[in-house]
Every structure is written in structure tokens, then in C-alpha cells.
Amino acid sequence: MTVDSTALRRALTERICGGGARTDRAWCAAVGAVARELFVDTAVYRSGGGSWEPVRRADVSEEEWLGLVYSDTTWVTQVDGTSAADADGPVVGSPTSSSTLPSLVVRTLEVAGLQDGDKVLEIGTGTGYSTAILCHRLGEGNVTSVEFDAGLAASAAGHLRAAGYGPTLVNGDGLQGHQEGAEYDAVVATCAVRYIPRHWLWQLRDGGTITTALSGWILASGLIRLTLDDEGAATGRFEGDRISYMLARPHERPPRPMFHRLPGQSRASRVDPGLLQDWTGLFVAQLAAPSAEFWNSGNDGRVVLADVATGSQAWSDAGEVHQHGPLRLWDQVEDALLAWQGAGSPDQTAFGMTVTDETQTVWLGEPGGPNWQLPV
């Protein structure tokens, strides 16, 4: 039985935009117009018990499938390169593509401040859903979208054709942008990056903007909109949203061996390691140790840091911190956390970023305040 999704789209739009939650109603109209079911193929993954379980459209009722599609949920569509449609059963691994929850798509585009007629470069086509939202608002002739994965790029092209949109689609490394379409009014990334690729700056017009999630190997993230000035520097402040996007594949963490504690120096910590349980505290730790990974080692607030580049380690235990290797990871993180606490432990809206061809700096308060260099 064919089920009309119009009412479901209307209900999704109300959930995202009801009560005056959005200032730009044009994005709400786009959510109501774009049929999301055209962009999720025939299966998605559902998380469960440490693995990813495929849910197939053919195995559920049409009402249940469309209810799933029109929930404000991120549906993982690919895990370590295997699509949900190709999975024989539950798989273990990391998500490598998804249909992002519509409210985050709308929030990101709202932060970007796009206006009618803007020419936009989207980084990460994915399923094509956010690309369709852009096309509905701006017109397909103003939208260029780049996808790294060839299979995903081909699938997204089919989805967009089925939905009636024909933007410029590119299969390639989105971190290189798309010079043939420059200059752009805006770059909008639907993936996270460890630093701002220079090609994005070079392909913007003066006064153009970059909207992206800044993340890293600790997997903390912050949403930011940067504006390019006529001297080639881009500056902006972070939003306060607790958002998460997958890292761009060229910025992903390299494979690492199992963690084993190695002997090192021990001392009392000057800050509570539990600060890394705080959303902004973890973001600060990532700024201080940009090539480290992080995980909890128990339910008692103990933490572990392991530097991918040097093998350095830091871990906490009963009020003490232990460090091994050429980098004193906890010293770096501790100094950053103390600077943050000294400023009153503000949320991410107190942080900003300045990007030039030579350096990329995240700062606290003002550009002259405490600051950290990104690993460009």
C-alpha cells in the first residue's frame, strides 16, 4: 500500500520549526517540501548492543518505515563502507555515512545565514537530503556539492534526480573544494574537520562565509561560522549548540593498536579529570592535545588520553595523573582547563577562531586571550 508522506513532512516541520524555534522560515518550508524517504534507500542501521543492525524497508510496514524516516533522527546508512542494504546481519564498526537528523541540517543552514541567490559549496553530499534542502531554498543552479565516496556520490545523484533536483555534483575530496565553480558566497560542511582547508578560503569571495563543525580525534566538536575579510583572514565565534558530525574521511583518526598503560611519571592533578565529562571541557582538552584520543576508563571519572602521533599517554587514577612519552599530555590539557576555569568556565560561545593561510588559532574571549593552534 502506498502511503502519502505529506502529513508526515508537515508534522516533522512542526517539530523542528514550531513555537518560533527557527528564525528563517524558508528552511522550514524546504523541510516540508523535500520527501526524505527518497534519500534513505531501502535500509538503515539501528544501533543496538555494540553493533549496528540493518532495518529493511521490505521487512516492516510502510507506515512503520515512513514513521522511522520522518522521526527527527540521524539514520546511519553506511558502517565502515558497508551500506545497510548490503549487510547480511548486524555489523560492528564506525558509521561512515548517514542521513543527518533534519533539525541539525536546518540548524547548520540557519547558522550559515544563507540568503536567496547565494552560491553555495556543500562539503559532503551524503544521501543528498541536505543538498535537496539547499536546492529548494536557493535554486539548483546555486548549489555545488562534493562527495568523497564514489558509491555515495552516485547514489545521491539518483536520489536528487528522483526528487526533481539537478545541482552540480562532484565526486572528489571536499577538502579541496571545487575550483571550477568558484567564487562562492558560502561553504557549508555536513562533515566535521580538524582544521579549515585552505582551498575553502581560496574559493570564497571577500565577505563569504564558512560554516562547519570543528572537531578532532577526541571527538569533541563546536559549530562555527567564519567570515572572510578582504585581507584573506576568516574570523568567527562558535555557537553554543551541542552538535556532532562525522569527521571528513581525510581527517579521520589513523588506526591505533590496543591501549596498554606504560610506566611513567605520576603526580597529583591540579584539576578534576571529571572536567572532561563536560561538553566544553572536552572541547578545551582537544584544543590542548589535538592529536590525542580520549576515553573513560571506568564509571568513577577516570580518564585516558593517548597521543596518536607520538604514543604519549596520560591517565588518571584516585586523584593522581600518570604520564608517559615525549609529550606531557595532561600538562597540556591541565593548563588549558585552568585557563578556561580562570575565565569562569564559559560555554563555547566564549570561544572564537581566526584562520589565515599560515595559521589557525582558536581563542578564548578575544583574539588576544588564551589561544591554541590547530594542527594544520
Score class of each variant (00 low, 15 high):
residue 288 A to V: 02
residue 269 S to D: 06
residue 265 Q to P: 02
residue 258 M to S: 14
residue 250 P to Y: 10
residue 288 A to P: 03
residue 288 A to C: 06
residue 277 Q to P: 00
residue 288 A to N: 02
residue 264 G to S: 04
residue 257 P to M: 11
residue 250 P to W: 10
residue 275 L to N: 03
residue 272 D to V: 11
residue 275 L to A: 06
residue 276 L to N: 02
residue 275 L to E: 06
residue 286 Q to I: 03
residue 288 A to R: 00
residue 262 L to E: 14
residue 288 A to Q: 04
residue 247 L to N: 10
residue 252 E to F: 03
residue 286 Q to K: 03
residue 283 F to A: 01
residue 268 A to N: 10
residue 275 L to Q: 06
residue 259 F to S: 08
residue 276 L to M: 14
residue 254 P to C: 11
residue 257 P to D: 10
residue 279 W to Q: 09
residue 264 G to D: 03
residue 260 H to E: 15
residue 282 L to K: 13
residue 253 R to N: 11
residue 269 S to Y: 06
residue 269 S to G: 14
residue 246 M to E: 09
residue 259 F to I: 13
residue 289 A to W: 05
residue 249 R to G: 05
residue 284 V to M: 03
residue 279 W to T: 07
residue 250 P to V: 10
residue 261 R to F: 04
residue 254 P to H: 11
residue 263 P to A: 08
residue 285 A to N: 01
residue 253 R to Y: 07
residue 273 P to G: 07
residue 258 M to D: 15
residue 271 V to A: 09
residue 254 P to G: 10
residue 281 G to M: 01
residue 274 G to T: 14
residue 251 H to V: 06
residue 266 S to G: 05
residue 282 L to R: 15
residue 251 H to W: 07
residue 286 Q to H: 07
residue 282 L to Q: 10
residue 250 P to A: 10
residue 253 R to G: 12
residue 268 A to S: 13
residue 250 P to S: 09
residue 247 L to A: 11
residue 257 P to L: 11
residue 276 L to C: 09
residue 272 D to P: 07
residue 284 V to I: 11
residue 251 H to D: 13
residue 254 P to T: 09
residue 251 H to L: 08
residue 263 P to Y: 01
residue 284 V to C: 00
residue 282 L to G: 06
residue 256 R to Y: 11
residue 262 L to D: 04
residue 264 G to N: 05
residue 266 S to H: 05
residue 253 R to S: 15
residue 259 F to W: 14
residue 282 L to P: 00
residue 266 S to N: 02
residue 251 H to E: 07
residue 277 Q to D: 13
residue 270 R to W: 07
residue 270 R to F: 06
residue 279 W to L: 08
residue 288 A to E: 04
residue 274 G to M: 09
residue 265 Q to L: 04
residue 284 V to Q: 00
residue 247 L to H: 09
residue 267 R to I: 04
residue 275 L to M: 12
residue 281 G to W: 00
residue 289 A to R: 05
residue 283 F to S: 01
residue 279 W to S: 07
residue 249 R to Y: 10
residue 263 P to N: 04
residue 253 R to Q: 14
residue 279 W to F: 15
residue 263 P to D: 08
residue 273 P to Y: 02
residue 257 P to V: 11
residue 267 R to D: 06
residue 252 E to P: 01
residue 289 A to F: 06
residue 264 G to P: 02
residue 264 G to T: 02
residue 262 L to W: 08
residue 262 L to C: 08
residue 265 Q to I: 02
